[in-house]
Lab assay of single mutants.
Amino acid sequence: MDVRRLKVNELREELQRRGLDTRGLKAELAERLQAALEAEEP
């Protein structure tokens, strides 16, 4: 998933699904989601 191409509301939805903080600027949201995705990979 390319988090840079997601819209802010899409980033927030993905973060919320993972129980993560949904507050912040788009860059912060993308960074948070990217870190979560990398942590999920085996």
Score class of each variant (00 low, 15 high):
G24K: 00
R18S: 01
E13Q: 07
L6D: 01
E40C: 07
T22F: 07
R18H: 11
E10M: 13
L29W: 00
L25P: 15
L20D: 07
E40T: 10
A39C: 14
A35E: 11
R18M: 12
R5V: 08
E41K: 13
R12L: 08
G24S: 01
R12T: 12
L25K: 15
Q16R: 12
L11V: 05
A27N: 15
T22Y: 00
A27S: 14
L25N: 14
R12H: 11
E40I: 08
R23G: 14
L29V: 05
R5N: 14
P42Q: 10
E10G: 02
A36R: 07
N9Q: 12
K7P: 11
A35R: 09
R17P: 01
G24T: 01
R5E: 10
E38I: 15
E40K: 13
R12V: 15
R32E: 02
D2M: 07
L29T: 04
L20W: 04
E13R: 06
E31M: 15
V8K: 03
V8C: 01
N9F: 02
Q16E: 14
T22Q: 11
E31S: 14
A39R: 11
L25V: 14
A35L: 09
L37V: 10
E28N: 00
G24Q: 00
G24N: 00
L6N: 04
A36S: 13
E41R: 11
D21A: 09
Q16T: 12
K7H: 04
N9H: 10
E41A: 09
V8D: 13
A39I: 11
R18K: 07
L11D: 03
G19E: 10
R5G: 08
E13K: 07
R5H: 08
T22I: 07
V3L: 09
L33C: 02
K26P: 13
L15M: 07
G24P: 01
R5L: 07
A39N: 12
A30S: 12
N9M: 09
L29G: 04
Q34A: 08
R18N: 01
A39F: 01
R4M: 15
E14A: 06
A39M: 09
L20E: 08
T22H: 12
L6Q: 04
L25Q: 14
E10D: 10
R4G: 10
R17Y: 00
R4N: 12
E40A: 09
R5P: 04
E28D: 11
E41F: 06
R12P: 01
L11C: 01
K7F: 03
R4K: 14
M1I: 05
D21R: 04
D2L: 03
L37Y: 08
A27T: 10
E10T: 05
R23M: 15
E28I: 07
E41W: 04
E28Q: 07
K7W: 01
Q34Y: 03
E10R: 05
E41V: 12
R4A: 09
L25E: 15
V8S: 08
G19M: 07
V8T: 11
A35W: 04
A35M: 11
K26S: 08
Q16P: 01
L15C: 07
A30H: 11
L20V: 06
L33T: 03
D21T: 01
E31A: 13
G19N: 15
G19C: 12
L20I: 03
E41Y: 10
L29P: 04
E38A: 06
A36W: 06
E40L: 05
R17T: 13
A27K: 12
L15A: 02
Q16H: 06
D2K: 10
L37F: 07
E14G: 05
A36G: 05
A27G: 13
N9D: 12
E41C: 09
V3A: 11
E14Q: 05
E41H: 12
V3T: 14
R17N: 03
D21K: 06
R23E: 14
M1W: 00
E13T: 10
A36D: 06
A27E: 13
A27C: 13
E41G: 12
A35G: 12
E28L: 02
E10A: 05
L33M: 08
K26A: 12
N9T: 13
Q34S: 13
D21F: 02
E14W: 05
R4P: 13
R17Q: 07
Q16A: 12
L33D: 05
L33W: 01
E41S: 13
A35V: 11
V3Q: 11
E28V: 09
V3N: 15
L20C: 11
E28M: 10
L11A: 02
V3H: 01
E38T: 07
E38V: 08
L20G: 06
K7V: 05
A36H: 13
V3Y: 09
K7S: 13
R23V: 13
E10Q: 09
A39P: 13
G24W: 00
A30W: 05
V8F: 14
E31R: 10
E13Y: 08
Q16V: 10
L29N: 02
R18F: 02
R12M: 10
L15E: 02
A30I: 15
E40G: 09
A36P: 03
R4S: 15
D21W: 01
E14C: 06
Q16C: 15
L25T: 13
T22N: 12
E31Y: 00
L6V: 02
A30G: 09
A30C: 09
L25S: 13
R4Q: 15
A27V: 10
R18L: 08
E28G: 04
Q34F: 09
P42D: 14
L25F: 04
K26Q: 14
L37Q: 09
E40F: 04
E13P: 02
E13N: 11
L6S: 02
R4H: 15
P42V: 11
T22S: 14
E13D: 14
N9L: 06
R23K: 15
A27D: 08
N9K: 08
D2H: 02
E40R: 08
E10K: 07
Q16L: 11
L15H: 03
R5A: 09
E41I: 07
G19T: 03
Q34M: 13
G19R: 06
A27W: 09
E10S: 06
T22D: 15
L37C: 10
L15K: 02
K7D: 12
N9W: 05
E38S: 10
D2R: 06
E40H: 07
A36K: 10
V3F: 10
G19W: 01
G19S: 08
M1L: 04
V3P: 13
P42L: 05
R4T: 15
Q34C: 10
T22R: 05
E40W: 04
E10F: 11
L6R: 02
E14P: 00
V3G: 05
D2I: 07
L25C: 13
L29Q: 07
R23F: 08
A30N: 08
E28A: 10
V8A: 12
K7R: 07
L15D: 01
G19V: 01
L33A: 02
G24I: 00
R17A: 11
V3W: 08
D2N: 06
E41D: 11
L11F: 05
L6M: 14
Q34P: 00
E14L: 07
L37R: 07
R23C: 13
E28F: 00
L33Q: 05
K7Q: 11
E14F: 02
E40S: 12
L20T: 02
D2T: 12
L20R: 05
R5W: 03
A30L: 13
D21E: 12
K7T: 15
K26L: 09
V3C: 15
E28S: 05
L11E: 02
T22M: 07
K7A: 09
A30P: 03
N9S: 12
L33P: 06
R5S: 09
L37W: 06
A36M: 04
K7M: 10
L33G: 03
A27L: 09
R18G: 02
A35Y: 09
A30T: 09
E38N: 05
E38Q: 12
P42T: 15
E14D: 03
L29M: 14
A35N: 08
L37P: 05
Q34N: 09
R32A: 03
A35K: 13
L25W: 06
L20Y: 02
L6K: 04
D21Q: 14
D2E: 10
K26I: 03
E38P: 02
M1H: 00
M1E: 00
A35S: 09
N9V: 08
L11W: 00
E10V: 04
R32M: 02
R23W: 06
E40Q: 07
A30R: 10
E31V: 10
R17L: 13
E38W: 05
L6E: 05
A36Q: 10
Q16S: 11
A30E: 14
N9C: 05
E31Q: 12
E28H: 01
R23Y: 14
A39W: 06
E38L: 07
